[in-house]
Amino acid sequence: MKSYIKLVNFEINRFIKIYVSLLVITLLSQFIGVIVTSSSFMNRAHEVMFEQNLSESGYLHKFGGIDFTDISSTLWFIGPIALCIVALIFYSFMIWYRDWFGKNTFAYRLLMLPTARISLYFSKASAILLFTFGLLAFQILILPLENTLFESLILENFLKTRMDVSVILQSNGILGIVIPPYFSDFLISYGIGMMFVFVLFTSILFERSFRLKGIVLGILYFIAAVLLFLSPLFAMANETVPDLYPEEIFALFLVLGILITGASIAIGNWLISKRVLV
């Protein structure tokens, strides 16, 4: 347990510089987005009102106001979120390969540690999970600040609706998926996410154990896991399979999810303790 915590801490510290940069990029881009979008909206509104000789209410009647969805759909806002997602997916690979491709094969020293090697596997997965939750928490934290800034930049009358954080999250497609409105949905989304992190890690270990042959094995393992997890959907499209009730479909997904996660950890454990090459 102690070595697991030490390893998690070690993984977090190794990535912390890039991670903090991601947070700073998100913060800057979203705040600049709020300022640029709302001030350009107000400037354009005043210009149009001047050119077409419209009153404030006349403008609003003709063109309408603005609300936070106009901000949260811009690239300023969505861009850094997408960047963070891509960065974490990329780092899910790098968290393994940097040990092998770094200077003087660091993996060798890690694998020689006097502790169960599966701790290494779990510590890397935990680090990815913590990085993900940290990003979510950061977005939840800065969203109300951005909203307050936005409302202070827009003249009262031009504000279509006042929105609070939960409404903003639900009104935006990407945010609604990243931070679902119900806690049960949150558990389901990130449960599926973690399952695929384990599947990916096991695929990577296949490659690290059997090299060229391992690439094929790893890819096949990943595809098989995805297909197996989605198999209830294929079953539903198939006419010969009787129609399933929603609660049965949910139970099927749950069982398959636990099965795939369990299998990935078991195979991962076997690969990292018996087969992995340095």
Binding site: V8, N9, I12, N13, I16, L130, F131, F133, G134, L136, A137, F138, I140, L141, F186
Partner: peptide
């Protein structure tokens, strides 16, 4: 040396 991990864990749990 644990400070960033502790911050990350605590803030995530508290905020989410």
């Amino acid at each position: 040396q644990y400070i960033s991990s502790i911050l990350l864990v605590c803030l995530s749990i508290i905020i989410i």
